[in-house]
Structures are given as structure tokens and as C-alpha cells.
């Protein structure tokens, strides 16, 4: 059983189901008027955020607080990091303060892995560069399962900038572990060169994939990609890979539309689609807290971590 959650690949099928089942139980807590459990009382969780990400940080913060953990928020801006402190020295500082878990968001792929060398507590990857974002994949899987039931055999289309997406990487791995069939849909410029080695299908044609999909997950397209010749223009991207009202009509009745946020309305997703009943976007946010509670609970709750294995 692992001590850290760095990659969705760290999770066996049993681990993943255990997190999702635990989240299901914890969801009931979130529905109470007093949303708090004493489970992690006396434990310290540090949110170490080198990138601005208010949504992910407050989601982890809420999760830790609902489990009664002490939460320390450490954001790079205005801290010693902005004065040139290295990741190692920041880590040693947190270690000296006795962090039981460090939740890290970092712009460099692999930074959470590096951090495991310098802290003795659990490390939870809250998004590293263009590598992974495993708790996002877990909350996506949790959301899908609540809407669609068992994910085995379900067809999931992940659409957009796969090349730079940590969400896509974690989702492909986790959904594969859970038995779903993933199809990545993107212009060829936004797919990694060796994507055929990934456990999924690949298509350049969104219209062909939509009718067969139970889940359509739209990825955010970063503004800076438009200046780097990944595609000719925002309008062309939107025409070929955006989920608009017309395309929405091709999706079957029970299918859902997801987006990890923040959205570019009118770019990869039309406003009507984002706000429709098929959209799970707001649920995803709520489920994020629940799933992150489950992850912290299982990593820190017992004397031994209940999920993953020692790295």
C-alpha cells in the first residue's frame, strides 16, 4: 500500500474503488448541517501551492478541515520561494514543522515525486506541470459513477489539449484501471507523439466519437497555445473541437458532459452546454471536496496508509 498519491497509476483497481466507496460514505457528511468529522484531529496538512489555483487549494483545504486536520496554506507568492528558496529548502522547512501530509501543486512535472525525498509525511499531487492530477481523475470517476453507475465498459471521450493536460493523463490511467474505454479526441498537434502506447483509443474526429460516448470530458485550451501554432485560430479550434449546441444533439440521452474547469465558454464549450442538465461541472466541484476527504482519510486516518504503497 502506497504512502503517497503522485500518479493515478499508483492506484490499483482495489485502491481506486476503496477511495470512491469511502468518498460515497463521506458524502453524507457534506450533506449534514455540521460538516465535520474528528478523524484527523491533531494531524497537520500543508497545502503547498507554487501555482495559483484557488479552486484546487480551497477544495483540499475544505476536505482537510472537515476531517478536523490543522491546515497550513503555503503559497509561493510573497513567501520565501519568491525570494529564490529551493523546493528542497521549502520541503525541509515543512518537514521541521511536522507536516503529516503535503498537498503540492507545482508547475514542474515531477515536483511531487522530488518532494517525497525530503519529507517524511505523505505527499499528495494536486497537479504537477503537464504530468498528472490524480485527485481530479478520482473526482471525475466519482462523478461519473454517481451518474452512470459502474464504469466498466463505459465509453469516455476526453477532448482537447491532451499534450499539455495533467487531467487527461490521470484520467486515462484511472479510467483504464476502472475498466472504462477512453478515446482521446484532439487535433494531432495536441497529442503526444507516442500516444498510441497509452491504454486508450485516439481520434481526430469529434463528430465520429460523440454518438458512442457515455461521457464527454472537455479540456481547457490555454490561451498561449494559440500563439504557438498548435492550431490556426481559436475559431477554427472551436469549430472542429468545441462542444456546441449542434454537437450536443449527437450525444445520446443519458450521456454526461464534464469539464475540470476553469472553462473558456464559447471556446471549447458553449455556454448552453455548460449550463445544461447534462453538465456535471458544478457537481464535480462539490465531489472534489468529498473525494479529497477520502484520499486524506485513507492516507492519514489509520496508523498505516490504507491506499497505495510505499514508494
Amino acid at each position: 500500500m502506497k504512502k503517497h498519491l503522485i500518479s493515478a497509476a499508483d492506484l490499483s483497481r482495489e485502491d481506486a474503488l476503496r477511495i470512491l466507496d469511502t468518498a460515497e460514505e463521506l458524502a453524507q457528511v457534506s450533506e449534514r448541517s455540521i460538516k465535520k468529522l474528528p478523524t484527523l484531529r491533531g494531524r497537520t496538512v500543508v497545502n503547498l501551492f507554487f501555482e495559483d489555483s484557488t479552486r484546487t487549494r480551497i477544495s483540499f483545504e475544505a476536505a482537510a478541515k472537515r476531517l478536523s486536520a490543522d491546515v497550513i496554506n503555503f503559497s509561493a507568492k510573497g513567501s520565501s520561494v519568491s525570494k529564490g528558496e529551493s523546493l528542497k529548502d521549502t520541503a525541509l522547512t515543512l518537514q521541521a514543522m511536522g507536516a503529516d501530509a503535503v498537498v503540492i501543486r507545482h508547475g514542474a512535472s515531477g515536483a511531487p515525486q522530488n518532494l517525497t525525498q525530503w519529507v517524511s509525511g505523505s505527499v499528495v499531487n494536486a497537479g504537477d506541470g503537464t504530468h498528472e492530477h490524480p485527485t481530479q481523475a478520482l473526482l471525475d470517476a466519482f462523478t461519473m459513477r454517481r451518474r452512470l453507475g459502474d464504469l466498466a465498459g463505459r465509453r469516455v471521450a476526453i477532448v482537447g489539449d491532451v499534450l499539455h493536460s495533467r487531467v487527461a493523463r490521470s484520467n486515462v490511467l484511472l479510467l483504464h484501471t476502472l475498466g472504462a474505454q477512453v478515446t482521446l479526441v484532439a487535433p494531432p498537434t495536441l497529442l503526444p507523439v507516442a500516444v498510441d502506447a497509452w491504454p486508450c483509443e485516439v481520434s481526430y474526429d469529434l463528430d465520429a466519437v460523440l454518438p458512442k460516448s457515455d461521457v464527454v470530458m472537455m479540456l481547457r485550451v490555454q490561451q498561449e497555445r494559440m500563439n504557438a501554432a498548435f492550431f490556426p485560430s481559436a475559431r477554427e479550434y472551436s469549430r472542429r473541437y468545441g462542444l456546441d449546441r449542434d454537437r450536443m444533439a449527437r450525444i445520446h440521452d443519458d450521456a454526461i458532459v464534464m469539464h475540470p474547469g476553469p472553462m473558456n465558454r464559447g471556446m471549447e464549450i458553449a455556454a448552453e452546454v455548460a449550463d445544461s442538465a447534462r453538465s456535471t461541472i458544478v457537481e464535480q466541484v462539490a465531489n472534489g471536496v468529498t473525494v479529497r476527504m477520502a484520499v486524506l482519510y485513507l492516507l492519514l486516518g489509520g496508523s498505516e496508509p490504507a491506499i497505495g504503497g510505499t514508494l
Partner: peptide, 18 residues
Amino acid sequence: AQMNEGEVSGRLGLAGWP
């Protein structure tokens, strides 16, 4: 570019050096 562009770079999310 951070490492050889190929299967490993795609998986690790490190920019590729073709």
C-alpha cells in the same frame, strides 16, 4: 525541451526533444 520526445516524455509530461 526536457528529455527525449517519445513514449516516456509523453507519459511523464516533460517537453520533448525530438
